[in-house]
Nucleic acid binder design. Structure first.
Lengths: 113, 113
DNA sequence: CGAGAACATGCCTTGACAGGAATATACGTA
DNA sequence: TACGTATATTCCTGTCAAGGCATGTTCTCG
């Protein structure tokens, strides 16, 4: 989980993932589209592969990289446990908080700041 | 988005978020439960706050930190765009890949570049 | 007003990691 | 087999961020 976050936290890696969402691509192809030089792409793909976000298939001298489901699904499952939180209407939540703080404050009214 | 990933990629920060899922907590409280010293907790909370993952409410000298919805919802929305991918049965996907590579290989009969 | 509690911030050191350049490796083909 | 293409790996360097420690700040209460 943390590994997945770390992998996606790097901007260029994130862009690669976004690109691969539209389908499998070869290394050079990725490099050209994202204006990255080849070694960088290979390195980033390595990291992505280590956390299972992509997988390779050899095709002649080319390596076709493709997104894989597992880490994304794990991410989704993890996020589900927070659904209760991220589904709240936030203005409503804001009110609640304001409520709480003012309530606390007026509750012990000794002197104003 | 990337900021959120970066924030969650740090192990102790991740633990803090997991803890806060069960409800708001004060700084010292968090430190004790996670065996972190106070400055660390404060620093991590700062990062989490900067990306909007938590919000504070003052309560006497205490600072109560609480998870917020927005980044989590953004994460969810982002992930939705990958649903097509992470919902696939993966053994099925494996077959597809094997299929493709052999197929490409057998009728790739072009001569020049 | 002074002290203590609960946090925040600053400085320093160290480790991890991204980028660049050069080089190594795998594969297909003439 | 030799060579070109596509990709991987290595080495180096600079940057940035986490941890530890010390100190600053805010708030409350006697």
């Amino acid at each position: 989980m943390i590994e997945t976050f770390a992998a996606l936290a790097e901007p260029n890696r994130f862009r690669i993932v976004e690109l691969l969402r539209r389908g499998p691509r070869a290394v050079n192809d990725i490099g050209e589209r994202l204006h990255l030089n080849q070694p960088q792409v290979s390195k980033h793909l390595r990291v992505l592969k280590e956390v299972g976000l992509v997988e390779v298939q050899h095709q002649a001298q080319q390596r076709i990289y493709e997104l894989r489901a597992r880490p994304l699904r794990e991410l989704h499952d993890w996020l589900e446990r927070y659904r209760r939180i991220w589904e709240e209407r936030f203005d409503q939540l804001d009110e609640l908080i304001d409520d709480l703080s003012t309530k606390e404050k007026t509750h012990d009214d000794r002197k104003r700041k």
